[in-house]
Design a binder for these strands. Sequence first.
DNA 1: AGCGCTGTCGTCAGCGATAACGACAGCGCT
DNA 2: AGCGCTGTCGTTATCGCTGACGACAGCGCT
Lengths: 341, 341
Amino acid sequence: MHVTLQDVAKLAGVSAKTVSRVVNNQGELSEATRQRVQAAIDQLGYRPNILARSLVNQRSNTLAVVAWGIDYYGPSRTVVGIEKRSDELGYSLFLNLMAHPDNGDIDRILDNLVERRVEGIIWAVPEVGANRGWIDSARLDRLPPIVFLSTQAQPGLTTVSVNNRHGAIEVTQHLIAQGRRRIGLITGPQAWWEARERSAGWQEALQRAGLNPDPTLVVGADWSAVSGALAMRTLLERAPDIDAVFACSDQIALGALGVAHQSGRRVPQDVAVAGFDDTPESAFFWPPLTTVHQQLIDVGCIAVQNLHQIIEAKRKSDLEVTLESTILMPELVIRESSARH
Amino acid sequence: MHVTLQDVAKLAGVSAKTVSRVVNNQGELSEATRQRVQAAIDQLGYRPNILARSLVNQRSNTLAVVAWGIDYYGPSRTVVGIEKRSDELGYSLFLNLMAHPDNGDIDRILDNLVERRVEGIIWAVPEVGANRGWIDSARLDRLPPIVFLSTQAQPGLTTVSVNNRHGAIEVTQHLIAQGRRRIGLITGPQAWWEARERSAGWQEALQRAGLNPDPTLVVGADWSAVSGALAMRTLLERAPDIDAVFACSDQIALGALGVAHQSGRRVPQDVAVAGFDDTPESAFFWPPLTTVHQQLIDVGCIAVQNLHQIIEAKRKSDLEVTLESTILMPELVIRESSARH
DNA sequence: AGCGCTGTCGTCAGCGATAACGACAGCGCT
DNA sequence: AGCGCTGTCGTTATCGCTGACGACAGCGCT
């Protein structure tokens, strides 16, 4: 079927080992034979079988990313970073998507990855509900090194995430600085750790400013624009005097913007709106949206970089290393939707 | 390092082959030993090494997707479909992203995939410029079966794509049916096959309706909202009497909508706007956007399904099979941005 | 009793590659 | 001439697993 080392060896009139030396650029051979072997390789179109090499080397040179929500902006960007760095470091990358973020065939997926002997795993599934329940040290001991993304830091786990709370604080403080006083909050689903963090940031910023976080100004949504629209409607009914809204995602903000327009309110004159994520579209919402930018590609790159370090350390010293958590600071992006009235 | 078949065999007091039989559910063994072996497997937490199995079976059970633009809505959705079907069919999936759609380390990527002995490849890189130039039969003979997405059908290649031209025709005809007569076009980059198809659809629909496709009403953009905004400005300067615009992507449409608002025009009363892609946001643009929906997840699923068929056929009869091209019909989604004035 | 058959299980070789070691020619040296 | 050394290359074993085949006990049968 495929051309093998032996085939090349036979053609070049040398032993298999010699061909192996040429392929792997190990010295110890004369220029003459190297060229002869190389010619045979080219002639036959020989490509080494990495599976066989992995078997004897005890290294698969593969990583895996387990993700959810790839068809949303955030997760897919993160995966781009993961793939990029993996490639740069010489790993091939397996992609595994979960059907739902909150349950799923975790066992099946992990078993498969172990069987494929991946050297490390990036866990890019958002922390929602108890979907981190499977993590315990006994389990982790049987698994390759794992780096967890978008998750609460905890001892014994290597994590990379963005400081959602900090981002939320910055937006809210910005709204306050623009003279807003009745600032509503449309939250993401509270089962999500990231959503809770953003909500907490809103609350913290208000308290720091001596403003009272009014519970009637808080409405839940599910990240989507539809739910954002519904929430905004509720918000406007409950508190017609509201003068700003922090939506916990750009999509939610988009829905909220639509309802604000329909209600005859001007944005930002009557009500300011801010989002979170900085999707490419947000700069072209009507009006352009103030939001929070996350360096998601960096998150992916750093995650793989850390994973690589752990793998290398493990191979050399055989002792288990877990890096500390890495936390990136998001950046406030100010646009028209929050301009001073 | 890892627990091996031998370890289990030793513990259970049987031969390695017997353990292998248990793992693979091959008959020929008594219930007693099966249970004893299974107990040993559980106790040691044994997981078979798929690399070794692949080596002897001559099957890697892996597929690969080569893609670009995963952080955009369309490509990422397609990948979701690809992953889903791959998983269902028992394949593991390698993810390879190209840095740019139009050049790139194609050789490096393909070499790597061959070395990993993937059984098939999904080529999910859009056709732009001459980036399909590497395809020739001599080359393909040395490669595993490939299914090409979003590409012009051509003999000898298995392709799965959406009929972009048809979609564009439908939008344009819809705009005409709404009473519009001066219908502008903001195209995607003409190096892209899909962009050319959409442009051609606009032209064809106008001609069919007996309207003259006016070249001054055609402006180019690069898919992004920024470029859409620029193009819309140009369009309004050139033809202030324009009464509709077909933007070749939702992002372009978004930019166009913003400029329309800024120019004091009402959408859809003064100018109708339509897009292409049906991104989740488009239903919440201001106003909600008329657009074209593509079944991208289906595209991914079908692609893998076809690939699987080819692989199976090849394994059984050893003769090379290439399926015909599959073309999906997109669907027009009518929303407020194109309502009758 | 002796036959063959079936059910169970083990032995052996080999998938494609590499590490460790060994073999051998040619060299310079005393 | 005889020594060891270096450079170059081959031999062997092994990674973890499975297919082909063989071995053997226990069974029913004539």
